[in-house]
């Protein structure tokens, strides 16, 4: 064959050190990681890394810190299976393997100058947090910011301390709702879709970014369209199990798209007719 230049090896793993581990809920932990020599990860909000625990395996995890945080990056990991259980057992000082960052993240440039509506469901807050922090760090570049958060119950709410800060900020409209309340819960109870009709927005200059469990998308999108937001102004981050991050293993393929290369963030107008995408 004629042209087969060798690039750097795509499966090579960089080592990262666990600097801190913080339990966010019973199921989720936040890992703060540093690369050798404090090198920046150079990611975009919404991208993911392949995390390696040698002997256990490798899994795609979205980066939940903003690229404006240069000295380290953070991963929020829910304990769900063998790999994440092993990850949860790590203590500060442990070393893990990292490949990436991979994928197309949230659309920062189309958001600039526009009003932004950020909608997170459950663990979807983790990737969206990278964008929220980026917007906060560059607040003047964006118009009105609405953050809507939905989760199962108050106990499963992530980043509670940060949510309080966002709630108190005058330049952010924050609201959240839980599917099931608790005796000491004073906030909204109900699905996240119930929050959308109450948001005051100018549809023509609003861009919505949605990240959450697959079941949430269809209903949230319906509400956004009812508010007059154009399909082209809606971005979704799709969940798939990427095995390689390189568009080769086929596990994240959505018809002719590879979630790991063409996504995980997609414009709704581009994928609305793709069977099985949402």
């Amino acid at each position: 064959m004629k042209t087969m230049a060798l690039h750097h090896c795509s499966y090579q793993v960089a080592r990262a050190k666990v600097e801190t581990v913080r339990a966010l809920t019973d199921l989720e932990k936040l890992f703060r990681l540093v690369l050798p020599d404090g090198e920046a990860l150079n990611h975009d909000p919404g991208q993911f890394v392949q995390v390696s625990l040698f002997g256990v395996g490798e899994a795609p995890i979205s980066i939940c810190s903003s690229p404006t945080q240069l000295d380290s990056f953070e991963l929020c990991v829910r304990r769900a299976g063998r790999f994440t259980t092993a990850l949860h057992q790590l203590n500060p000082g442990a070393e893990i393997g990292i490949r990436g960052p991979f994928g197309v993240g949230f659309p920062v440039i189309p958001l600039e100058g526009n009003d932004v509506m950020l909608i997170a469901g459950g663990l979807g807050l983790a990737p969206l947090r990278s964008l929220i922090h980026y917007i906060i760090d560059n607040r003047r570049d964006f118009g009105k910011v609405d953050i809507l958060l939905g989760c199962r119950d108050p106990q499963s709410m992530l980043f509670c301390d940060e949510l309080e800060v966002w709630r108190k900020r005058l330049d952010i409209n924050f609201s959240c709702s839980v599917d099931r309340g608790a005796p000491d819960w004073e906030g909204n109870v109900g699905l996240i879709t119930a929050l959308i009709p109450g948001v005051h927005l100018e549809p023509l200059k609003t861009v919505a970014v949605v990240c959450g469990p697959p079941v949430m998308y269809r209903f949230v999108i319906q509400e956004l369209l009812k508010k007059g937001i154009a399909e082209r102004h809606i971005y979704l981050s799709l969940e798939r199990h990427m095995k390689c991050g390189l568009g080769k293993c086929g596990h994240c393929q959505i018809e002719n798209l590879y979630c790991c290369r063409d996504g995980p963030v997609f414009n709704y107008a581009d994928i609305k007719n793709i069977k099985g995408a949402i």
Partner: peptide, 30 residues
């Protein structure tokens, strides 16, 4: 393909193995 780790005497080997989209777990997520 799928990726799997195997531990041996000298360390860990990470290999890829053919996978099939016709198997139920092919795309199943955590």
């Amino acid at each position: 393909f799928c990726v799997q780790d195997r531990q041996g005497s000298h360390g860990t080997e990470r290999s890829r193995i053919w996978d099939s989209c016709q198997l139920d777990a092919f795309m199943r997520e955590a």
